[in-house]
Design a protein around this nucleic acid. Sequence first.
DNA 1: AAATATATTGTAACGATTACAACTTTTATA
DNA 2: TATAAAAGTTGTAATCGTTACAATATATTT
Lengths: 139, 139
Amino acid sequence: MDIKEIEGFLKFNKIKPSHHRLKIYEYLVKSKNHPTADLLYRELVNEIPTLSKTTVYNTLNLFVEKGAAQLITIDESENRYDADMSIHGHFKCKDCGKVFDFPLNFAAIDMGGLQNFQVEENHIYLKGLCNECQAHKKK
Amino acid sequence: MDIKEIEGFLKFNKIKPSHHRLKIYEYLVKSKNHPTADLLYRELVNEIPTLSKTTVYNTLNLFVEKGAAQLITIDESENRYDADMSIHGHFKCKDCGKVFDFPLNFAAIDMGGLQNFQVEENHIYLKGLCNECQAHKKK
DNA sequence: AAATATATTGTAACGATTACAACTTTTATA
DNA sequence: TATAAAAGTTGTAATCGTTACAATATATTT
């Protein structure tokens, strides 16, 4: 996704593509590391020295509101953000703290008890040990 | 579940059943309203006037640590607690804010991308409109 | 070019949670 | 039963992520 595509995508979601918004969205799309607002700020402030943390918060809230990104609350005490709006799950490693995406067959979840509820969002969070951290432990 | 059973259950989980702990656990089991620490405090402080909020936090953290309750992070800015440790999902109504349980066929979720990850916890959160709030909107 | 709307900034406030030290109650030991 | 040690509880202060708000800068419209 190059910067022109990002611009088009933001416009499509009724978000005016200012420079900061483009940069923040680009970081979300390219890094895929599900950053917190704070991490995003620290990563971008070198490139955009005038960036303020409030702008990062404002921008992320705007993205979520407009449906251009989703908020991940897999862990208490840290809100993370993901520009991938397709249906997928998140796995957080309890050791290294990394958050991984995984594919999801959402239709297979039996929600018999929810037949009359109108579902608008789904958040599938798993936690445990990632591949790498399991290997470390065995040593 | 009467108070004797709760006492036994806490002991089983290596938690000394002090009076406060019994009362807090009893509230979790009986109310089933997935309370926040603050709500729990407000509900119990009438009955236990000496109760402090720190004790509520300490106790809930202890329950989670010992596996007697689970932490629900379905919503940013509020940690909720559930004494039901069986596999089930949570649905939060965006209108009234209530959190509902629903049954879950966890095995049916296709987690092909996770074959090498060791899963220790699962959190399935859905959001939307509950039955009642849909009815209100139609009026 | 002036007026208006929008975006960005920095500081201060807020609220949930935790740290910590003092105090109380319970349990173990003599 | 008396005493010591351990565990539980409390209240206050600190921390940290997030938001409110007013001021400033930038972009858009007339």
